[in-house]
Computed example of a mutant assay.
Amino acid sequence: MERIQSINLARIDWCCADRGMTLDELAHEIDIAPATLANAMAGEAGLTFNQLRKLAAFFGRGTLFFLEPGPVNEAKVHSPQFRTLSNQKPELSHRMKLLIERVEQQRAVFLALREELDQAEVVRFTPPALEGLSIPAAAKRAREWLGLADRNDFDSYRRAIEANGLLVFRSNGYNGKWQIAKESPILGFSLYDPECPVIVVKKLDAETRQSFTLMHELGHLLLHRASSIDDEGDLHSPEGAEQEANAFAGHLLVPDGFLLSIRDDQRPPEAAGFDDWLEPQRKAWGVSGEMILRRLMDAGRLPATAYAAYRQWSSQRVIPEKDGGSREHRNREPRHLFGDGYVRTVLDAMNARRITLAKASSYLDNLKISDLHKLERFYAGV
């Protein structure tokens, strides 16, 4: 089989260094004999086109990337937002880095399609002015900006954010290119852009935890105008920008006025009973018991020992894991994954004949044409 000799080997070296892996590890990942790859890197033999294609796909690049002359221009390959996240978490996995780049590509698609549509209907990101405000005051203004009602869940929080010109993606629960692995500590990340920021939330069994991650990332975007990537430790950080984002999320989800509905004299003596005590509020506000307890503690209405006891009790609970979920409604998966605003923009562009049916399918996670038509009917209410 003919082998390509004009491969830019320095770019393969750069990609390996960028992902923190050796050539042997790369050979294993793309199912090429280590000796074959070593010979190619030594200039003794090239790679077949199929081998080069597999290598390029692994790194999330096109094959032409490895055929172009010259060194890699990192400023063009990685956006400032990507570099910010990589610097915050140098240990990010190869899979996580690919996901971040994939999200950036989806945003680029969204913005390009949006420019093709009626500009009068485009919602621009116009953040509220929060400079100089305390965290509670900033959260109050942000809640007004979002137009939130008193009863909410993750979906309503998400819709409110999307309605203000942001994209909100939620990872898939099953294995695939849009999943944040279950074993990964990453709970979410945000990519700041003055035109269209993006928030990505890891899908969890408890949607209340997703809601907190969502508002934590919104805090980074509105308070700090910066990109961020966060794990469990960040969502409990007691200092710096993470603490501010945590406090912002807490006050936005549970304003001071909401706490007035909680009867302290009905608080159970044992932490195991706290969730039942707070059940009406948990369901109405779409938040976890821990979130409410933290707000009560910060307000001086709950001893720190009671909060710590609840966290210990909660950490010891054994909750059966759900499987990846049924794909019976595959046609609706793009909506769950990319959000309503993104999906509507793709469908509008397709119906306006700005893009083909095949292109729309590729933008919607390679949805089958039959499923794409089902998705259209879903939005049409048919």
Rank of each mutant, 00 (worst) to 15 (best):
E121M: 09
R330E: 15
D298A: 08
R143D: 03
D365E: 09
S361P: 00
L222H: 01
S288H: 03
N73C: 07
D153I: 04
V382I: 10
C16G: 04
F125G: 14
N39W: 03
F154L: 13
V198H: 06
P303K: 10
D24P: 00
N73S: 13
I7T: 01
F258N: 03
E321Q: 14
A139N: 09
A149I: 10
F66K: 00
R159W: 06
I319T: 15
W178D: 05
N351G: 09
G70F: 02
K89W: 08
R282G: 00
P127A: 12
S171L: 03
S314D: 15
R354P: 02
L204D: 09
A149Y: 04
R19A: 10
F49L: 07
V122N: 09
E321M: 08
V103R: 00
H329F: 14
S156K: 09
I262N: 04
F212N: 08
N351R: 14
E25A: 13
K359L: 08
L23W: 13
Q243A: 15
G176R: 03
P334W: 12
K202D: 01
E232Y: 12
L111A: 11
N73T: 11
A241I: 08
D24T: 12
W285S: 05
P69R: 04
D205L: 11
C15D: 00
K89D: 08
T63L: 01
A35C: 00
A249G: 07
Q106I: 02
H329W: 13
A45G: 01
I161T: 08
A304R: 12
P80S: 11
R159P: 00
S261L: 03
R311Y: 00
M96P: 02
R53F: 05
Q210V: 06
S6A: 14
G233Y: 09
A306N: 12
D371H: 15
L9W: 14
F110P: 02
T208R: 07
L47G: 00
A149G: 13
P268W: 04
V287F: 01
Q51C: 02
Q88M: 14
D323Q: 13
K202E: 04
K202N: 08
T48M: 03
Q179M: 10
R170P: 07
E101A: 12
H329P: 01
P127S: 13
G46K: 07
A245K: 00
A160L: 10
I30Q: 05
R143S: 09
R143K: 13
L166W: 06
A308W: 03
D276G: 04
R124A: 14
G165P: 06
I199L: 11
F338Q: 11
T356S: 15
E101D: 15
P303S: 13
Y363I: 02
P280A: 06
S261G: 04
E131D: 15
R19T: 05
G188L: 03
R11I: 01
L64Y: 06
V168S: 08
R114G: 14
A352L: 05
D365W: 00
T63F: 02
